[in-house]
Simulated scan of single mutants.
Amino acid sequence: GEAVAPYRRALALEPTLPSLRSNLAGALSLSNGDLREQTALLEQAVLAHPDDGNAWTNLANAYRQNLDLSRSLEAGERAVQCAPSSALAHNNYALALREAQRWDAALQAAETACTLAPDHAGMRSNLSMLQLMRGDYANGWLSHEARWSGSSELRGNRPTFPAPTWKGEPLAGKTLLVWGEQGMG
């Protein structure tokens, strides 16, 4: 949120700076700014710089949040073309593909995102949802643990128990606490 005013000032001073509109839109997104303004800034950014993978990545997300699925898919595809090594481009494209129920392509994009950013909990959490939806429970439940730090809704809210987390070791003579969550416990 603190970046919005300096970005606006920079835009007023030098409106042709590359990435400025995309960065301002990103700051607005992270501070819950006006989605219409974000989208307009990003559309201007990709018009001025059609190969800007970051702008396309952000635009795919803005269109998805604005429920414009067809444009989100187009922007996501373009983002991946412009920035094939960007985990965020693949992740945002995966989210659009998931909304379009294009499961195979969504899974592939999410897996690519996680390969490119293996320690990113948010991307791992997104992958887990696709894996679980597809019935890949062995991988999905493992990846689902990332939700405690990767999901904005759950971040910092992991329940604490006065016992260690079970890692698959034998349970003979021990007690196992099963945590019921989301109807899947």
Rank of each mutant, 00 (worst) to 15 (best):
A3L: 14
V4H: 00
A5N: 06
A5G: 05
Y7P: 03
R8W: 06
R9N: 01
E14C: 10
P15Y: 01
L17K: 02
P18V: 08
P18H: 08
P18L: 10
L28K: 09
L30Q: 14
N32M: 09
N32R: 11
N32D: 11
G33A: 14
L35C: 04
R36L: 10
R36G: 15
R36I: 08
Q38L: 11
T39I: 02
T39H: 01
L41N: 03
L42Y: 05
Q44M: 12
A45W: 02
H49M: 07
D51M: 13
G53R: 04
A55S: 02
W56L: 06
N58V: 12
A60Q: 09
A60H: 01
N61P: 07
A62H: 02
Q65N: 03
Q65P: 03
N66K: 13
N66G: 15
L67A: 04
L67D: 05
L67H: 02
L69Y: 06
L69A: 03
S70P: 11
R71N: 15
L73V: 13
E74Q: 15
E74A: 15
G76S: 12
G76K: 11
G76F: 06
G76I: 11
G76N: 07
R78E: 09
R78V: 07
A79C: 06
V80E: 09
A83H: 10
A83D: 10
A83W: 05
S85L: 06
S86P: 04
A87I: 04
A87P: 00
H90F: 04
H90M: 02
N91L: 03
N92Q: 11
Y93E: 07
L95A: 10
L95H: 11
L95S: 00
L95N: 01
A96C: 08
A96N: 06
L97H: 03
E99F: 05
E99H: 10
Q101N: 14
A106T: 01
Q108P: 07
A109Y: 04
A110P: 03
T115D: 06
T115E: 13
L116V: 00
P118R: 13
H120W: 11
H120R: 10
H120L: 01
M123R: 08
R124Y: 00
L127H: 03
M129W: 07
L130Y: 02
Q131V: 12
Q131P: 07
L132E: 03
L132M: 08
G135W: 08
D136M: 09
Y137R: 13
Y137W: 14
A138Q: 12
N139V: 10
G140F: 04
W141I: 12
H144I: 05
H144A: 01
A146H: 04
R147T: 04
W148R: 13
S149V: 09
S149K: 05
S149P: 02
G156Y: 02
R158P: 09
P159K: 06
P159D: 14
F161N: 12
A163F: 15
A163H: 13
P164C: 11
K167A: 14
P170E: 14
P170I: 15
A172W: 08
L176M: 12
L176Y: 03
L177H: 14
W179T: 13
G180P: 15
M184K: 07
M184A: 11
